[in-house]
Design a protein around this nucleic acid. Structure first.
Length: 271
DNA sequence: AGTACCACCTGACGGC
DNA sequence: TGCCGTCAGGTGGTAC
């Protein structure tokens, strides 16, 4: 689930529920989820402070916390990465945690925020500064923010399938397997097209399509069933058909990931 | 440099 | 019903 639109929804969810509330407790239910921090250290950092602001970059969510009332008084940032199956849940704590809770942060008002992660592929960490952290891990500009000039960088230097390039988090952060398929479908570009064979016009079209798809998905709450009827995402299953022309979709493996496209609207490259 | 494959994990689903 | 193989929206490493 968690690609850029989902992360944006998680951010808004956290903002509307858990911000500016005093943290009274932290439980770590599975220490494997922690990245380079001990449960004790995490607890001592968070206890008695409050989340004051959040920021998102690609598929990473950062929640800044501090002890004071001042929004600018940020002691450090909690890093959320959701892997393939992570999510957040805010609920009235009656002693029972939601299924798959890995970390539960409790607040003064009797509510708790749980980080859920079924497959344990997500990570929770801590950093003193978001900017230096994203530099350290080599994260590219956010796909929803990137300028056209920044987007152009993707297509410079070497070959490679356009889908692989769009999914490279070091170049542009936020697109995952399914939204990349959606962007390519809406732009009518075959996923295996070599990125250096695309015309400037097609690159422009990919850029505007990417922005539109991301904006639309966020507007619809990142829920596949609420996406426009001509989106391919709800069709990604066996026997799916093209929502624009009705032809059977094709499924291939590209970079080890399932890739769906419409063979009549996204033509084979090299011809 | 680009790509294929494997690993990390757990759960759901289809076939037999 | 039960077992087993396969697949799943992420990331990172290795080996051609």
């Amino acid at each position: 689930m968690p690609e850029l639109p989902d992360l944006e929804i998680f951010k808004r969810y956290l903002d509307s529920t858990a911000l500016h509330r005093k943290i009274t407790g932290v439980s770590v239910l599975d220490t494997r989820i922690l990245s380079e921090i001990s449960p004790g250290k995490l607890k001592s950092f968070l206890k008695s402070s409050s989340f004051h602001q959040t920021t998102r970059r690609g598929k990473y969510l950062f929640a800044g916390f501090g002890n004071g009332e001042d929004k600018e008084d940020i002691l450090a940032w909690l890093i959320f990465h959701f892997g393939m199956t992570g999510s957040l849940k805010y609920y009235k704590n009656n002693g029972e945690d939601p299924e798959y809770s890995k970390i539960v942060i409790s607040f003064e008002n009797g509510y708790s925020l749980a980080y859920l992660c079924t497959r344990m592929l997500g990570k929770i960490g801590l950093t003193s500064a978001v900017d230096s952290y994203t530099v350290d891990i080599g994260l590219g500009p956010d796909a929803a923010d990137v300028s056209f000039e920044g987007f152009l960088e993707l297509f410079k230097g070497g070959r490679g399938a356009v889908k692989t390039a769009l999914m490279n988090q070091n170049m542009i952060a936020g697109l995952g397997n399914i939204y990349t398929d959606e962007v390519l479908f809406q732009a009518g570009v075959h996923p295996q097209t070599q990125k250096d064979s695309l015309s400037l016009k097609t690159v422009r079209s990919l850029y505007t399509t990417m922005k539109q798809v991301l904006d639309t998905a966020v507007d619809r709450g990142a829920e596949p069933e609420k996406l426009p009827s001509d989106y391919i995402i709800p069709q990604r299953q066996k026997n799916g058909t093209c929502p624009k022309c009705g032809n059977d979709l094709k499924k291939i493996t590209l970079g080890g990931r399932s890739t769906y496209f419409c063979p009549s609207r996204q033509k084979e490259p090299d011809q």
